[in-house]
């Protein structure tokens, strides 16, 4: 029986009068991959950002590892060590080397020993095939390399849950594969993940669960294969037909 890692209960989010997310109910099981799909403007990014405190919300609650999250800067700062996030733009710190980018969290936030954190960072860099770039600056890297390092930077904190917000959307096509490969490996290692993506073939391959969002509402929450072969709603069918894959 799967245990839920994150439960989202009746989450409501608006900017002023504009209602962005309506009554979001969502359960993410430990070790599972959830793919969040939906047309642009449907609220995918806003939802994923609510899950690590980059956006606040008006009502509803989050339960992480069985503990209700009481939103405050302090609580979020703690939780973000367990909930890693990677963004669409390759957002490495340009003023730091690759290794320093990765070590910032482990050393300054988690106060871990430098030797141990460095060893782990190098091991992770090897896994994404970029060990030789540890002393490079972000400007010396391609978009795909930067994005893989951004993933390593998040993983270096040993998170229990990873959020990926369209991490391949700004990459050149030939760079996409390497980044997806990293995500695929993570899924095989049973990392709990929530992935926003427009790579439909990848979504189909990797998803244990698909959440389909439109106009800020969850229209479907179904096991991965079922969503692609037999979507429950007409909207999801139209969405799938509109995607070229």
């Amino acid at each position: 029986m799967a245990t839920p890692l994150l439960q989202v209960e009746h989450l409501e989010k608006s900017y002023g009068d504009v209602h962005i997310l309506h009554d979001i109910d969502l359960t993410i099981d430990t070790g599972s991959v959830t793919v969040l799909l939906g047309p642009s403007g449907s609220g995918k990014s806003t939802l994923i950002r609510c899950l690590n405190g980059l956006e606040d919300f008006q009502s509803g609650q989050l339960v992480f590892s069985g503990q209700p999250v009481v939103p405050s800067p302090k609580v979020w700062q703690q939780l973000r060590q367990k909930i890693g996030m990677v963004f669409q733009s390759y957002d490495l710190f340009p003023n730091l080397t690759v290794l320093d980018n990765i070590l910032l969290g482990p050393l300054k936030v988690q106060h871990r020993a430098k030797a141990e954190a460095t060893a782990q960072a190098i091991k992770l860099l090897k896994e994404v095939g970029l060990a030789e770039y540890q002393d490079a600056y972000p400007r010396q890297l391609s978009g795909g390399q930067k994005q893989r390092i951004a993933i390593v930077r998040a993983l270096a904190l040993n998170p229990e849950f990873m959020l990926f917000d369209e991490v391949t959307a700004s990459l050149d096509p030939e760079m996409v594969r390497g980044v997806l490969e990293v995500l695929r490996n993570l899924a095989q290692q049973k990392m709990t993940m929530l992935v926003v993506t427009h790579e439909m073939n990848f979504a189909r391959e990797i998803a244990d669960q698909v959440v389909f969002l439109e106009n800020g509402r969850i229209l479907e929450q179904t096991p991965g294969q079922q969503f692609f072969t037999n979507p429950q709603t007409e909207r999801a069918q139209i969405f799938l037909n509109s995607m070229d894959f």
Partner: peptide, 30 residues
């Protein structure tokens, strides 16, 4: 300093003070 820089700093658990010291000041002063 780009908003995404601040957010990615927050996303790795930096406190406001750490964010200022390691991310915002080095970039902003430049």
């Amino acid at each position: 300093v780009a908003k995404i820089q601040v957010e990615s700093g927050l996303a790795i658990g930096l406190s406001r003070g750490q964010l200022a010291r390691y991310v915002v000041f080095p970039q902003g002063l430049t």
